Simulated scan of single mutants.
Amino acid sequence: MSLTVLAPGLLSSFQDLGRYGQQHLGVPVGGAMDERAHRLANLLAGNTESEATLEITLLGPRLRIDAPCCLAVCGADLQATLDGRPVPVNRPIIARSGEVLKFGARKSGARAYLAVHGGFALEPVLGSCSTNLRGRYGGYQGRALAVGDIVRLNRGLAGAALDELAQELWNLRIYLPASLGAPARPRLRALRGEHAQLFKAAALRNLYSAPYRISPQSERMGYRLQGPKLELQRPQQLLSEATCFGTVQVPAEGQPIVLMADRQTTGGYPKIAHVASVDLPQLAQCLPGDSVGFEEIDIAAAQRLDAQRVAAFARLSQALAPLRALLESAHGGAAADARAPAAADAGTGGAGGNAGATEPSSTEAGPDHV
């Protein structure tokens, strides 16, 4: 039960919800850049939301399926195909042994997430299967996928009735809660940061009115933005503090950095704002050269949006109970769970539905060097 990497793509690495509880030791949280797409892929694959998924950046891999499985692709539309047949985003798909999953030209977004029912057989490091690319640990041997890699799956499907299972999955009517459809907003919602009062009034006006362009010097650690300079009232020396996903820090040159999934654990640049966590998935799907804007909200609004997002995922999980039952019944005489306490690394799953509209969420904070 495995996938064989025929071509690795631009950057394909396993990510889960992150490595929490270790920041005081200098260990970054990491995890999926687009948590919403990651969680969706897992739920639509019949998994828990914490399973690892394969995060695929812009140019996708070519993977040979070596055992029957159920998979789901969410997030960016990279025009995936399975043996030449289009793979719809946000649907569960049955893949047969020997078929090849391939990703084509980008249609929208920057990052797609592949989940496989039962998950990838990865070994957790400090409680997480997320790949830390700088530290070279977690995921698959601590790195992005390479040609010839063989990634084991935790569970396979019985081969006898795959056509019937595929039809039953297709017949399931699955509707995503409006809040999880996430159409792009013209401006990202953000809260004032704890150091906002240290900036000139013009800096705050610029941040919440002017467009900023994502710099080519942007990656999983942080997005550098280019636009009107954000100036302090006077030079300040600040103590380093813990960082969070979504914090907008401003180095001395006045060009902001939004801290992303692989942010460092502490930072000392002034924090002018925090992007509401409900809008971080939209930012994670942006590319260098894209423009972003910000609009100010307060913490009560951010918390309300976050609560709506949590409730939407709970409703979706409950609605997908028939899907999970179908997939469990398909394991009948299939190979046993291959989760290994020793081997290589641990991960994710997949299966899907029909889309709907959108909802929002809370806040978080962020790095010094990107």
Rank of each mutant, 00 (worst) to 15 (best):
P235I: 04
A166V: 02
V27P: 01
A32D: 02
L153K: 10
S108N: 12
R143M: 00
L17F: 05
L165A: 04
S179A: 14
E219T: 00
G60I: 08
L122V: 14
P8H: 11
A321R: 10
L71V: 10
I272R: 08
A112H: 07
E219R: 11
Q226A: 12
G109S: 12
G21S: 10
G118I: 10
A273T: 04
V250F: 01
A273N: 11
D163N: 12
A242M: 10
Q264S: 08
R309L: 14
E219D: 15
E328Y: 07
N90W: 08
W170E: 08
L169Q: 08
L259D: 06
L54C: 01
R189Y: 02
A110H: 10
R220E: 00
C244L: 13
V292T: 01
V29P: 04
Q264W: 01
H117D: 12
A338N: 13
G293R: 06
R106E: 05
A95P: 00
A338G: 15
R187S: 05
A190N: 02
Q237I: 13
R134A: 03
W170A: 12
P186A: 13
I272E: 05
N132F: 11
Q197W: 09
P183F: 07
L145F: 06
L43D: 06
L40P: 05
W170V: 04
S209E: 06
P360R: 15
S128D: 00
S291C: 14
G350W: 11
K200R: 15
P367F: 03
R134D: 13
R106H: 03
T363L: 12
R143K: 15
E296I: 02
G293K: 10
E231H: 07
G18K: 07
S209T: 14
G142L: 07
R152H: 05
